[in-house]
Amino acid sequence: NKFNKEMRNAYWEIALLPNLNNQQKRAFIRSLYDDPSQSANLLAEAKKLNDAQA
């Protein structure tokens, strides 16, 4: 399933972002599970926040 693969990839990328705190990571990951079709958008948002907090 395409969404499962995208979701799994996004999950690990988000989990490993160095500048997000655990609460932020959990919120993004919860959103991934709520709507796997938004994986790419959620990952992009997480990366933006990660960069902003660098």
Rank of each mutant, 00 (worst) to 15 (best):
N9D: 10
N22Y: 15
A52V: 09
Q23T: 09
L49P: 00
D35G: 04
A54K: 04
I14T: 01
N21T: 11
Y33I: 07
S37P: 07
A44R: 10
N4R: 03
A46H: 00
Q53F: 10
A15W: 14
N41E: 07
K48L: 11
P18N: 07
D35P: 01
N41Y: 15
R26D: 03
Y11Q: 11
A46S: 07
M7Y: 07
P36Y: 06
I29D: 00
K5E: 14
K47D: 02
N50H: 02
Q38R: 04
W12E: 05
K2T: 04
W12H: 08
Q24I: 06
L17I: 01
Q24N: 02
N41T: 12
Q38M: 13
S39E: 02
K2H: 10
N50G: 03
N21M: 08
E6W: 03
N9M: 15
N4H: 11
K25V: 05
D35W: 08
K47H: 08
L49R: 06
E13C: 14
A52E: 12
I14V: 05
Q38Y: 09
D34W: 09
Q23V: 06
N21W: 12
Q24W: 03
D34P: 02
A15M: 14
A54E: 11
S31Q: 10
D34T: 09
S37Q: 08
P18G: 07
N50W: 01
R30A: 05
W12R: 15
P36E: 02
K5C: 06
K48C: 02
N50R: 01
L49M: 11
R26C: 10
N1K: 06
L20W: 00
S39N: 07
S37T: 11
N1F: 01
D51C: 07
L17Y: 06
R26T: 07
D51E: 10
Y33L: 09
K2M: 10
R26Q: 03
A10V: 09
L20K: 00
N22M: 04
I29N: 02
N4P: 10
N9I: 15
K25Q: 02
F3K: 09
L32G: 01
N19E: 04
I14H: 00
F28Q: 01
K25A: 02
W12L: 09
Q53W: 10
K2I: 13
L17T: 02
D35M: 13
K47I: 08
Q38P: 02
K25M: 04
K48H: 11
Q53R: 03
D34N: 11
S39M: 15
D34V: 15
L17M: 12
Q24T: 05
A46R: 00
K5N: 06
A15E: 05
K25T: 02
N9P: 02
W12A: 11
F28G: 00
A52L: 09
Q24E: 06
A27Y: 14
A40S: 10
W12Y: 14
K2Q: 12
M7A: 09
